[in-house]
Design a protein around this nucleic acid. Structure first.
Length: 152
DNA sequence: GCCAACGTTGGC
DNA sequence: GCCAACGTTGGC
């Protein structure tokens, strides 16, 4: 069982949106490295840290669980969709999505919180120039984040 | 809104 | 296959 961190801009899709849906489709990933993590790495049952990016206080805001492994991201085929990819075909889809289930909100763990922690300060999330929206989280990192979690 | 970092595109 | 131009990400 692996651990991941998924980034989302709360204006586009927040942890509250996931809670409302219970199970949400994680689509719109248009970066090959992130796609590869989704396609080859994420397994049903894996734990996901939900991270809010590009907002007032970027932070880990909750936990989710992968419930459906990679399948073709339907938005790539839809010409009207902003994630449409004209170079992708149904025979050879380029992008994948996974489904995640809401688990819980937590009190936000901010970047300052992470930076202050001996283990978490080395997370790839904090590395300069880091832009991947899907990031692996090590067992040690997960343990450290768990220890910081407080009920929201 | 700024800007650094990075990925992608396309001409050659 | 190189590389400049451009677009995007995302923290600050």
């Amino acid at each position: 069982m692996a651990y991941w961190l998924f980034k989302s801009e709360p204006d586009a899709y927040s942890i509250d949106d996931l809670k409302r849906e219970t199970i949400g489709r994680w689509d719109g990933v248009r970066n090959y490295q992130a796609r590869n993590f989704l396609r080859d790495g994420v397994k049903a049952g894996d734990t996901v840290l939900f991270y809010h990016s590009s907002c007032k206080v970027p932070a880990i805001v909750g936990v989710a669980k992968a419930v459906k492994e990679a399948y073709p991201d339907p938005t790539q085929f839809d010409p009207a969709h902003k994630y449409h990819d004209p170079k992708s075909t149904r025979e050879k889809p380029r992008w994948v999505a996974v489904d995640v289930a809401y688990v819980k909100h937590i009190q936000p763990i901010t970047r300052d919180d992470l930076r202050a922690h001996p283990v978490l300060s080395r997370m790839s999330l904090l590395q300069r120039g880091q832009r991947l929206s899907i990031l692996p989280v090590s067992k040690e990192e997960w343990a450290a984040v768990s220890a910081l979690m407080k009920k929201a």
